[in-house]
């Protein structure tokens, strides 16, 4: 069992590190949401392996809580990142997408020094909806 636990923990921790790299690299908030999801999942996995090793049940409520929190996190992020102006649900024209891509390129070069996810988040918010409507939620 010891060997199994060591191998399994190594794999899960590697997954967590890879998720961290993805969170750091971005490039968009949604990639970070995805990385966060994976990080939570590997955390749940690691706790599960530990509980299986020592055969204990008292950490299992943590698993329940974490599996819910991970979901709430990615939903909240995608709601904020997808905050849409009027004409909601419309598929955007290629020109708009191109303009957005240019704008986000500019943003990315300005932030090219690799800030943390939290520091970059408000800027990307503002850039997406061109207003301050959803950025406020992050700062308060």
């Amino acid at each position: 069992m010891v060997v199994v636990v060591i191998v399994a923990v190594t794999l899960v921790v590697t997954a967590a590190v890879l998720a961290l790299i993805r969170i750091e690299k971005g490039p968009s908030m949604l990639d970070r949401a995805l990385g966060l999801d994976l990080l939570t999942a590997s955390l749940v996995g690691a706790i599960a392996i530990e509980a299986a090793w020592v055969r204990r049940t008292e950490t299992i409520p943590i698993l329940v809580a974490l599996s819910l929190v991970g979901f709430v996190g990615s939903v909240a992020l995608s709601r904020f990142a997808a905050r849409e102006p009027e004409g909601e649900g419309r598929v955007r024209s290629p020109e708009e997408v191109a303009a957005q891509a240019r704008a986000s390129d500019v943003m990315r070069t300005e932030h090219g020094h690799g800030g943390t996810a939290a520091a970059e988040a408000p800027d990307e918010q503002d850039e997406q909806d061109g207003g301050r409507t959803s950025g406020r939620g992050w700062r308060s």
Binding site: S28, L30, A33, L34, D37, V44, I60, P61, L63, V64, S67, L68, G70, F71, S74, V75, L77, S78, R79, A81, A82, E84, G89, V91, R92, E96, V97, Q100, A101, Q128
Partner: peptide
Amino acid sequence: AMLALVVAFQLLTAPVGAHLVSRAGFRTGK
């Protein structure tokens, strides 16, 4: 019982989360 609950949550929430994120990605041109 609790673990079954975690599995059920995962099965329900993972597709919904994936759908929300990818839809947001499409709609914001990412």
